[in-house]
């Protein structure tokens, strides 16, 4: 659906040769510390920033080719929400939500109804006449979301959308974003520095460090078997690196089990059949957007280890 490649020259260290492809309808996370280039990256997708070299393709459109009114039309399909919400303090909630419709030249008669629908969708219909300064942070972000949805975009960019919110409010905003993805089929790109946001919300994630993607893949894989040192550091910050194993003299495998396999005595059954002894070096159950995933780091000793690995691979995902 849209494929994003961008390469920046060596004189522009914000992004240095980033390759990413985001699939239609997924929630894709981009995580990194401040200064990693996340905000620059996401701003390439709506033309707020331009790549020095390389290509950025959004929804089939090469961003290098669009400017003027074509760019403005594209921006209506790629909306964005912000860390500090970006609401206009001089306009009421309803007027804020109506703004993109007015800019898009929507029929004035239809705007009120559309705004009411959108405010209903985010649960703020009673606040239509209030000014942003009268709202809480979570309510402001809901207005931001309603406003972003006004032009019925295909892609929603979330730039640290929950970083200014408390944990409870963050959870409710993340739930709302996940609902939108499910109900409207929105492709959502989430920029964050918080691993927890990625865990709750994203299907896949890319870890950005100093303008480079150091690792990318399924969220559950990256949580359990982070390959890059930067990823491990982020996980440590989030208190989520319990999966770091203890040293083991034999063969070590990482196993991820999902769904029914989690409720079955998988290990003992395979141990009995193959004669392999499993030592659990690390284990945890992670709750991800896709569901719960049990993740284990196992030490293998004795028996027919190749057969054991094959049997494990039947039940879940195995990495050595």
């Amino acid at each position: 659906m849209h494929r994003v490649y961008k390469h920046f020259g060596p004189d522009q260290p914000a992004l240095a040769g980033v390759d990413l492809a985001v699939t239609h309808g997924e929630i894709f996370g981009i995580i990194g510390r401040s200064g990693a280039g996340k905000s620059t990256l996401v701003r390439l997708l709506n033309g707020l920033e331009r790549a020095d070299s390389g290509t950025v393709i959004v929804d089939g459109v090469d961003m290098a080719d669009v400017s003027g009114s074509a760019l403005r039309t594209l921006r209506r399909r790629v909306q964005m929400i912000f860390q500090n919400f970006g609401l206009l303090s001089s306009r009421t909630v309803a007027q804020n939500v109506a703004l993109p419709l007015r800019i898009a030249g929507a029929d004035l008669a239809g705007i009120d109804g559309r705004v009411a629908d959108l405010l209903h969708r985010v649960g703020l219909i009673d606040y239509a006449g209030k000014y942003p300064s009268q709202l809480s942070g979570g309510q402001k972000q809901r207005v931001g979301i309603a406003r972003a949805l006004a032009t019925a975009p295909d892609i929603l960019l979330c730039d640290e959308a929950t970083s200014a919110l408390d944990p409870e409010t963050t959870a409710s905003i993340l739930a709302l974003i996940a609902d939108l993805n499910r109900e409207l089929g929105l492709t959502i790109i989430v920029i964050t520095h918080e691993m927890d946001v990625v865990r709750q919300l994203c299907d896949r994630v890319a870890v950005l460090h100093n303008g480079r993607v150091v690792e990318s893949g399924l969220v559950s894989d990256i949580f359990f078997t982070p390959a890059a040192q930067e990823t491990r550091a982020l996980l440590t910050d989030a208190g989520a690196d319990g999966a770091m194993g203890i040293a083991f003299p034999g063969r070590v495998v990482h196993l991820a089990l999902e769904g029914e396999a989690l409720a079955e005595p998988v290990l003992t059954r395979i141990a009995r059949a193959t004669g392999v002894d499993f030592t659990i070096l690390a284990s945890r159950i992670g709750h991800f957007r896709a569901g719960s995933v049990g993740q284990f780091t196992l030490g293998l000793s004795g028996g027919d280890q190749d057969a054991a690995l094959a049997a494990l691979a039947d039940q879940g995902r195995v990495r050595e």
């Binding site: 709506n46 707020l48 760019l71 403005r72 039309t73 594209l74 921006r75 209506r76 790629v78 909306q79 964005m80 912000f82 860390q83 500090n84 919400f85 970006g86 609401l87 206009l88 303090s89 001089s90 306009r91 703004l99 993109p100 007015r102 800019i103 898009a104 931001g144 406003r147 032009t151």
Partner: peptide
């Protein structure tokens, strides 16, 4: 606020709309 300006630009506003609908108010 800078993010307010960016939000309005990201909506597809022209510079004229940016000035009249966002910056001046």
């Amino acid at each position: 606020d800078r993010s307010t300006v960016q939000a309005v630009q990201a909506m597809g506003a022209t510079t004229r709309e940016l000035v009249l609908l966002a910056l001046l108010p």
